[in-house]
Amino acid sequence: MTEKKTTAAQRDGTDWQPRIVAFLCNWCSYAGADLAGMSRNDYPAAIKIVRLPCSGRVDPMFVLKSFERGADMVLVSGCHPGDCHYSSGNYHARRKLPAFRELLGFMGIDPRRFKISWVSAAEGNKWSSLVADITEEAYALGPFQEFPKCTAPEKTG
């Protein structure tokens, strides 16, 4: 773990740090992230968490919006299938989001930048290693530029 303690500066001497937007359901993954905190698991700070009631609440537009706004990586995480607090919300997510990911390439977004994961409230460790892994991958993929370039002029302001 200690080796993985990388900051942007230490890494390549530049200021660039990936922006990772995470949509977490309140009941499992958000709590799992809390548990990671309570366990003092250290992980990269590039990830920013948006709290949602359920992974089923994730509108693909949220993902698209994130990329449009310059996110380098988007993560959706919910309860494990079968454990949804709302019975079936994560099933909706599980069907809808992978299908959506198939379309990302078509829109010029590398599908590897979109992650879906199931983290339970008990999986603090899983959360921290997940964050570490995707941060690593985000670094490897580099900044996501294609999309903001073409959309930015219209969108800003």
Binding site: T7, G37, D42, A45
Partner: peptide, 14 residues
């Protein structure tokens, strides 16, 4: 706290 100070060590990043 849980999502920031407890999981990050770099003061600037945090």
């Amino acid at each position: 706290r849980e999502h920031c100070s407890w999981v990050h060590t770099d003061r600037r990043d945090a």
